[in-house]
Amino acid sequence: MIPVTVLTGFLGSGKTTLLARLLKSPEFARTAVIINEFGAVGIDHDLVEAGEESFVQLETGCLCCTIRGDLEATMADLVARRADGVVPPFERIVIETSGLADPAPILNAIMSEGARGSGLALGGIVTTVDAVTGLATLAREAQSVRQAAVADRLILTKSDLAGEAADLRVRLAALNPRAPLSEALFGEIDAGVLLYTEYDRLDDFHTHTHHVHADDIQCIAIRRSEPMRALTLTLLLEALADHCGAGLLRLKGIINVAEYPHRPAIIHGVQHIFHAPAWLEGWSTADHDTRLVLIGRGLSEAWVLNLIAAIEAEIAEIAPQQAPAPL
């Protein structure tokens, strides 16, 4: 699979500067970059100089406002041209979104069946936050809150200009407690922070049920040791789509499916759209617990736990003697 990393962050938060630096690091050799700029005339792509093995493709218009098929088509085209030898054999894709973009439609495009069929998988979401203006931006711009809330990693830019930015750190920790916060000092950052995958973060899930809220965005983390039947997972996702819907900014999880205990299933959802699970070859550690993270508005940890309990009780009632046999 080719990992696709989303680099997002509000206008002026330093995405392009960061990307330009990263593309000069050896870790980012063989990277295809899709830069999305708002407006018909792009500038950012001229600011990013790719190496011999990497290249930049420009998309104009706001990705989240146009049909997500545009992005799907762009990615599929890149993969096809890679196979034909028309473009360098890239090993990853980085999408730099416009600063005004809602990340949800972009994530849906990356996790779509079409993208999966092209051999693409979500690698992670990195969100830049301006240490100088970030606090005010979060207070003023709802889109910047969404960008920070869905991140797998937050990067504080321009921290050399802002000192400690203690209030902003507190705000970000409350908004997205599970995302590690790194600093880009003078635009420099360890390139490795962008190369980890979604699964790495779930694998590193060490907290038990966790629930924090800042403003009206909540992050719920649920861990359970009992394997979950496939039918329970199906019904759970259906109810989440019905009752959390647009408020669910992101759902991600690694599931120990009772029928396939040796093949963890990775699930993703954004708003009411859930994607077919990606099955890993095996567990990478001795920790085989199911771990679910939900980020969004109007969520309730108690409701999710009660929902799982009621679905499991119903399934047990319907088929008490049909305990799932591991396949």
Partner: peptide
């Protein structure tokens, strides 16, 4: 307004 999306049963098996 319930979701118009219906989740298919996870009969999807690992490949």
């Amino acid at each position: 307004r319930p979701s118009r999306v219906r989740i298919a049963p996870i009969g999807i098996t690992p490949s």
